[in-house]
Nucleic acid binder design. Structure first.
Lengths: 234, 234
DNA sequence: GGGTCCGCTGAACGTTTGCTGAGAACCCGC
DNA sequence: GCGGGTTCTCAGCAAACGTTCAGCGGACCC
């Protein structure tokens, strides 16, 4: 839940499932984007023409025309709007990358953390927005989003994908308490049915890898959640 | 019981139990919100359409349709009203699925303190109301809601969840006398059966942690209640 | 000044919460 | 299909937490 006081960019989210559309748009808004939504391909093309978004998040499966067709139309319009596709896990991936219509894609079911990362990466590439920080630092902890790398006290650390996403989420929200439910919501896939016990396990893994020495950075607030806090003020 | 001279926002409270509906709406009104109530899902959708509230407080269990269905309808209506769910404690699944449609949730039995905190947090996030202070200060006492942290004379203090809620309630009501019954009502869950002795215990804990030095901030008014008062004018 | 009431605090308790190690299920590359 | 890495579940354990209670001391009233 990163709240910024400026608009990062204007996005168009296209998906026919209202749940996913709302999940995405709400979360993107909270991250500082201006978001419009469309429920099918026709609406999408219309909207894109009118409001000229900086990026389009596009489901491949749409009721009227598929995402590739939509992307094709956008290209024909002469626009160079970057597109991030949402695809089902099975095999469509090759098509997406092969067609070179997408700048990136995310497979369903995704986690918000993932979608946000892809969108930011694409915007950075296409706009040359180099001032968007790609490196997060908290005390002697460093995380590079692009290189997908983490250092503790200058030493590189190996993290599994989930560990990385969790640490990233904690670092983006430095100083803010996150409940296990919130963490689950952002870091895990949206269809994850399990309970918050996983979060405990992963916090434990993370601590072992990046938070063994004093002063500790990852704090447990009993009954509330977790915070990553820089030494001063603790 | 914070009484403000302006309306913070318009809320719609939906619950079929009259007790809870009234408890909530009375307390929210006293906190400066404009409150409407509905007893079932149909009424809720109707009302929401007409009066366009800024936020909906929605019980998951309703006689006609469940809260998720109501939230779904609201979304379909194209509204972006934030929703705060009220759920039973045991429905862990509810929480996860609920969050797809909700911006936050509170488990029953809740304390008014909790519900208020969630509502404010959601409004802050969704409206971009970043200037609403997240930090309370009284003399050399500071409390940050987001970070869930307290400082006394610049030094961080560790508080348990209940201690934190109590101090928060005292600070929000600085200068106002609160009876033990009132405190019980706001800080403890509404189904708490015990007596006011707990409040005494917790005031004692709090004093030990944040009010050891002169001038004292937490004052006892014999036979009446407690006040938190800044030094000047005491 | 004495009796009574009220509030303070330390100790004790049962309960809840989170941490961790072990292991089962899974995926992926070879 | 085998092995390493990864994800998730679970159960036992330890510490923190909420609550009650009793003994004490100070405040209030007559």
């Amino acid at each position: 839940m990163v709240v910024l006081d400026r608009v990062e960019a204007r996005l168009l989210v296209v998906d026919d499932e209202p749940n996913i559309r709302e999940l995405l748009s709400a979360s993107l808004r909270m991250s500082g984007f201006e978001v419009m939504t469309a429920a099918d391909g026709g609406e999408a093309v219309q909207f894109a023409q009118r409001i000229r978004p900086d990026l389009v998040v596009l489901d491949v499966m749409l009721p009227d025309m598929d995402g590739f067709a939509v992307a094709g139309r956008l290209r024909e319009m002469g626009s160079q709007m970057p597109v991030v596709f949402l695809t089902a896990r099975d095999g469509v991936d090759d098509k997406v990358t092969g067609l070179r219509l997408a700048d990136d894609y995310v497979t369903k079911p995704f986690s918000l953390e993932e979608v946000l990362a892809r969108i930011r990466a694409v915007l950075r590439r296409t706009r040359g927005d180099l001032d968007l920080p790609t490196r997060l630092k908290v005390a002697d902890l460093e995380l590079d989003e692009e290189a997908h790398q983490v250092w503790k006290a200058g030493e590189p650390v190996r993290l599994s994908p989930t560990e990385f996403k969790l640490l990233h989420h904690l670092m983006v929200n430095t100083g803010r308490v996150l409940s296990k439910a919130q963490i689950l919501e952002h870091v895990w896939n949206y269809d994850f049915g399990g309970d918050a016990g996983v979060v405990e396990s992963y916090v434990s893994y993370l601590r072992r890898k990046v938070d063994t020495a004093e002063p500790r950075l990852i704090h447990t607030l009993r009954g509330v959640g977790y915070v990553l806090r820089p030494p001063q003020g603790d």
